[in-house]
């Protein structure tokens, strides 16, 4: 019987996660959003709470919202939730659960000539997501205030393409009142989204690699999260098939639990000796 690859399993999980996280179908029909109590719970992924189907809250939006309030308080609830997902899963969240990551995966499947970011530029651009996290998500919402003492959710307002795609477009399509309020800001956000969509067709997951603050946060946990991968060095023949298969540019044989690894499993599928595997929790060996 033909073996089901990690890639196929992952695609099914991505689809299920996207549907589950955005399960309020009536919202799309009515041009409104879900207002149930489950929205007090943060989902682990970048999924705008103003998406008509969203059943939970976006952790990055919630983080900024609490930080930019009149009384800035350390948002323990959101940080704790993110740390919990981080230590349990690390960037498995990016590879398996994030709807915007999945959309980028699908866009990359479009058969056009693929581009390559020069290695040196790629290395520096990867740090950009940490700048986005510390500057737009944490620092500016706290520091810059309007005359009433409130801050702004800088990342949501000026960058987040998941918000424009998942919330902006469907809500504006179904809600005449909102459509009449469109201005320059929407034009800017739509431009950002279109640029990321075009880039995603040519480059694998450009938003995850260079801009996503949530991916940046989870990357701190990748080295010690409960879900880790391991290479059996004794069986590895150093053919580098894994590194050629890795679209995130991880040096698999050197640093398999790199902050950039989204645990997609492409290296496992590519290894001719089956020497890449999930770590078993008890001994840190094959699982």
């Amino acid at each position: 019987m033909k073996k089901i690859t990690n890639e196929k399993k992952r695609n099914l999980i991505q689809l299920a996660a996207a549907v589950l996280i955005n399960g309020y179908a009536a919202g799309f029909r009515k041009g409104t959003i879900f207002t149930g109590k489950s929205k007090a719970v943060c989902v682990p992924v970048l999924n705008c709470y103003s998406c008509p189907g969203a059943l939970g809250a976006c952790p990055i939006g919630s983080l900024q919202s609490l930080l930019s309030g009149y009384h800035t308080r350390i948002p323990f609830y959101v940080l704790g939730t993110l740390m919990l997902f981080g230590v349990l899963l690390g960037r498995v969240v990016c590879g398996f659960l994030c709807p915007f990551g999945w959309i980028q995966d699908l866009l990359y499947k479009i058969p056009v000539k693929k581009g390559n970011v020069p290695k040196k530029a790629d290395r520096y651009l990867r740090y950009l997501k940490y700048v986005v996290l510390f500057l737009l998500v944490i620092l500016l919402p706290v520091v810059i205030r309007d005359e009433f003492g409130f801050g702004t959710t800088w990342f949501c307002k000026y960058v987040c393409p998941a918000g424009t795609l998942g919330a902006g477009l469907p809500l504006l399509a179904g809600n005449v009142g909102l459509r009449q309020s469109i201005g320059a800001l929407f034009g800017w956000k739509l431009t950002v989204l279109i640029m990321i969509v075009i880039l995603s067709v040519m480059i694998y997951r450009p938003f995850c690699k260079y801009l996503c603050p949530l991916g940046a946060f989870y990357s701190f946990f990748n080295k010690f999260s409960f879900y880790r991968l391991a290479v059996d060095k004794e069986r590895c023949v150093d053919c580098k098939a894994c590194e050629r298969a890795c679209k995130m540019g991880v040096e698999v044989t050197k640093e398999i639990n790199s902050p950039e690894c989204i645990r997609c499993g492409a290296c496992m599928d590519a290894c001719p000796k089956n020497c890449i595997h999930k770590e078993r929790l008890s001994k840190g060996k094959k699982g």
């Binding site: 879900f34 709470y49 969203a54 919630s62 959710t153 307002k157 424009t164 919330a167 902006g168």
Partner: peptide, 22 residues
């Protein structure tokens, strides 16, 4: 500290900044 209620309050209203209106 009832921070979850603050998250809920934000999440049940359409976020105009998120959708690019204001």
């Amino acid at each position: 500290r009832e921070e979850h209620l603050e998250v809920l309050k934000k999440a049940v209203n359409i976020c105009l900044q998120c959708i690019g209106i204001g």
